[in-house]
Design a protein around this nucleic acid. Structure first.
Lengths: 334, 334
DNA sequence: CTGTTAGCGCGTTCAT
DNA sequence: ATGAACGCGCTAACAG
């Protein structure tokens, strides 16, 4: 800045002013300063700036898993909101690794970011993280915990939506595919499906899986195909699109059953690939962008509203997306 | 740090030493300092630290589009390498917006990051970006430009791989689906496909598209289906998985053709959804993780090797992934 | 409207 | 092994 000042024939304060409070500077000197900046290729040092100001105009977002498009949606939603308020968004990918998650949390803390948005590992011991947040505003996304603001999706409702939809299509032999139930989201989705079954006076059988990936979906497809036709499940609620896609694929291509004819299947998440298959997947759409935006909103509220701020958790509603895996001619094709 | 020093009964220098050069400090005082840090919840201020040191142990990654799993793969690859060298990776999503891209480039510059990895907008006027890089090491990913190190995929080879594969399956009426050709990658892929056709003495017809999305894929499917069966294309190379998936879906479900029986189709990118459909897509896999890792490697080389560093562009090879959209029983199912 | 100057929190050199 | 003091680049009084 010294060099710029010298070149423009002014003091450093004037340079600082043209940068941060242009209205305090005469047009002519301002132009002279701008020109000097351009000629010298000056880029201001935000570390020094932040040191002086004590804050950084940036929000840190730590995501469990960038590979899951749900979290990418959250990032997009968050960025929309932060951008509107003149904040930048930095994304860090924990890649399903608690150590990395803590590393980035710590990094953002040391960097004195305005606040942190955290979509944490489900299994994450929350105290480990909380020890790292050091009083900085942290808003949880897709996770609820005391002492934090948070945004979650209503998984119970999502499970209910999916099961009720299948029941409305006349399905009576219902199954819920997913696991492990230690995952809170899976458990809630099953609970919702169970409630829908109860309301209709039907039974719901749980077909547990070790994980939510494609190979488990294939295994379940074989299991369903082996059943005698008259007793076979005709309505299958799955806990994830990955499961459902693999299941539908094997049900039809490997086992020769018809979907949705003999077996109607719903997914969960509305991942980007859900609508791209030959049998587009009926699924429950996570309100990812809205969750990201809401989380950023809560963070902004916490930033401006302290210290009389009260933590709260927002629950956003998922929505049913009807495609071909549950209905032959969907009402609302995607 | 003052507080910590006082609490531990030492000077700030000793605190700094326990943090950065523990070997200079007696075990007992070191423990005392650690304890004080824990009790006070002290988190060191990296803005001050960076200001003093002049650098930041962080690499910035600016991505055109987080929504595309190819770029997520790049991010993963880059992080693996940076992590090995004790650098953190910050990700910024330009979201296909040149302004945002410049914003984040500028942000990283002001923050004095060690270096920047940039997967830029294809259409991006490169001088706009270069004006913003201010002498900081920048490595381009998925884009080649003079004056920078870069990593690109060999799209010409990819197109050749796909077309040759179809030819080896006995296909003779070949088409290339994709556009606009102003996209360098699309043009190169077509060129490679053309070369394979030339080598086999076959013709290749270009079916241009406005973009690479699903609706264009559907349009092309209809166009192909309308052709008389004996003249219809039996080998279709597409420029993207999105196109290919939609095309395969409509070819079979809407127009009643068989894939790969009557029409064999290849995709491009190996997006995460490519293998999840009922007819898993034969496709050309982008070496995303390798590209990210290589780019980070080039950046590290540039950081350590200056000033005698010479820019270079690495070209990584894509690979063919054979699934069911081109062969009934693929040799290497995914 | 512009210039002078005192720190922001930390790392490090030089004494001790 | 430890402590005192200076400066990294910038912002914001305050003085002119």
């Amino acid at each position: 800045m010294n060099d710029v000042a010298r070149r423009a024939g002014v003091s450093v304060a004037t340079v600082s002013n043209t940068l941060n409070r242009p209205q305090l500077v005469t047009e002519s000197t301002r132009l002279r300063v701008q020109e000097a900046i351009g000629e010298l290729g000056f880029v201001r040092n935000s570390t020094a700036r932040s040191l002086k100001l004590g804050v950084v105009n940036t929000v840190g977002l730590v995501l469990v898993d960038l590979g899951n498009s749900f979290f990418v949606d959250i990032a997009r939603g968050a960025e929309g909101t932060t951008q509107e308020h003149g904040l930048s968004l930095m994304i860090a990918n924990a890649d399903v690794d608690l150590q990395r998650q803590d590393h980035y949390l710590n990094l953002f803390n040391e960097a004195r970011v305005s606040g942190i948005l955290l979509a944490p590992l489900d299994a994450s011991l929350e105290h480990v993280s909380s020890a790292r947040t050091a009083g900085r505003p942290v808003v949880l996304v897709n996770y609820a915990a005391r002492g934090y603001c948070g945004v979650v999706a209503d998984d119970e409702l999502g499970g209910h939506l999916a099961a009720r939809h299948l029941i409305e299509q006349g399905r009576t032999r219902l199954a819920f595919v997913g696991g492990p139930l230690t995952l809170g989201a899976v458990e809630a989705r099953m609970r919702g499906a169970q409630r829908a079954a109860d309301e209709a006076g039907l039974a719901l059988v749980h077909l547990p899986t070790q994980s939510l990936n494609a190979s488990e979906g294939r295994r379940i497809a074989a299991q369903i195909a082996r059943m005698p036709a008259r007793r076979r499940f005709d309505g299958v609620v799955t806990a994830a699109d990955t499961l459902a896609m693999a299941c539908v694929q094997d049900l039809t291509a490997v086992h020769g059953l018809t979907v949705p004819g003999e077996v109607a299947v719903t997914g969960y998440d509305d991942n980007h690939f859900a609508s791209d298959g030959p049998i587009p997947l009926s699924t429950v759409r996570q309100p990812g962008p809205a969750m990201g935006a809401a989380a950023a909103g809560l963070l902004l509220a916490e930033l401006t509203g302290r210290p009389q701020h009260r933590h709260r958790t927002l629950t956003l509603k998922p929505s049913l997306v009807v495609r071909n895996s549950s209905v032959d001619t969907p009402h609302q094709p995607s």
